[in-house]
Design a protein around this nucleic acid. Structure first.
Lengths: 205, 205
DNA sequence: CCGGCTATTGTCCTTTGGTGCAGTACGGGA
DNA sequence: TCCCGTACTGCACCAAAGGACAATAGCCGG
């Protein structure tokens, strides 16, 4: 498990700013890692490390917004806190709508930054939890055969075995067999649990 | 039903701005209504009218942000679009985090404004739909007696009648009776539907 | 070619769920 | 005081679900 202390990733091309902020982070007892460009940041390993990102808007190479886009498309993005000296309102609005955790302006007050970091880390933990749960469920559903999935979709709609049998043009006995397999593979013991699990996994509507 | 054309409510103390924007709205074929202060807006009937709000930040009396707060506490808020000439980043961030649909700056381009309005109206329709559905469900759940609710919570956890009977210290027959009542009152015919409905209504967790 | 997985179905039996019919008991409102 | 809703329960019956044991058939990879 990768459940160590979360890391604050700082991406900023301004060396003096990096110095200042790392001092702050050290004082706040945060683990951190710095990068001087989005490109440099993206080169690091796929990084499934918990944490958050503090990023400047304007940098040589990809901007902060572009970094956000890229990470988002990547799948499991870390929460992003923008921290910039030359932002404007449309940009901040865009960033937030894109899912940024916060958009702060330099100079930033220590308390403000720390509060934002805490929110970002909390959010990351929450989302990480959810993603992992979801992956786990997807895996279980992945073990189902196509036919079983078909049966499942009818079961969670509350249909009786005989109805399902009719719909799928099979005998009731067959449905019972599939049903038993489904329950076993998904590790549930009641229809109620089955429905809940399906909902959680985002299967069926 | 209050399903007529949605209304764009404009709250701004600047008369010349109101003139300009209403001209725009008319051109865009929107129904609208104007107010020169948050107070004036809040005096209007409870307003369960579909639509959205375009509001200035700084006005005599309550500011746009305060109006947002008030509406939010009120229960069924309309989506809010801030439109201001003198905003700053922290304010825009705050407004968006508070749930504003958008935060635009004057002067605003016609297309930008219309796009924002469309998003806001779409969102309102969606939320309105959801709220109404939820209210309907709550009403059904409201018809349940305390004891029935108790039984329900066990049922949706997938417990057997005999287990529920044990937990609630009653006979299995009694549980069956409650269960039948529940199914009737909630208008469902299967446990699957029951679980889905409970989830949707935000009951049990 | 064989073992394993999937899909299919059958019979038999047990456990659960659901319903009809009936009766007791309590508390509040007409 | 009487009626109604709520809660509770028993008996009997039927329907549905689920498990046990078993078998057939097609497909795929070793």
């Amino acid at each position: 498990m990768n459940s160590g202390k979360p890391t604050v990733f700082v991406v900023d091309d301004d060396a003096s700013f990096l110095t200042a902020i790392t001092r702050l982070l050290r004082a706040g007892n945060y683990s951190y890692q710095t990068f001087t460009s989005a490109t440099e940041f993206l080169k690091t390993p796929p990084m499934d490390e918990p944490g958050c990102i503090i990023v400047d808007l304007h940098m040589p190479g990809p901007s902060g917004l572009e970094l956000q886009d890229t990470l988002e498309k990547g799948g499991n993005p870390l929460p992003i806190i923008f921290l910039t000296g030359h932002g404007d309102i449309p940009t901040s609005v865009h960033a937030l709508k894109q899912g940024a955790e916060d958009f702060l302006t330099k100079p930033v007050k220590r308390a403000t930054l720390f509060a934002a970091i805490e929110r970002a880390l909390a959010r990351d933990a929450r989302e990480r939890e959810q993603r992992s749960r979801r992956r786990e469920l997807r895996a279980r559903f992945g073990a189902l055969t196509p036919r079983e999935r078909e049966v499942l979709s009818h079961v969670v709609r509350g249909q009786l075995n005989k109805q399902i049998a009719g719909d799928l043009d099979a005998s009731e006995r067959t449905i019972k067999a599939h049903r038993a397999n489904i329950m076993a593979k998904l590790q549930v013991r009641s229809v109620a649990e089955l429905v809940r699990l399906s909902q959680e996994a985002g299967i069926n509507g």
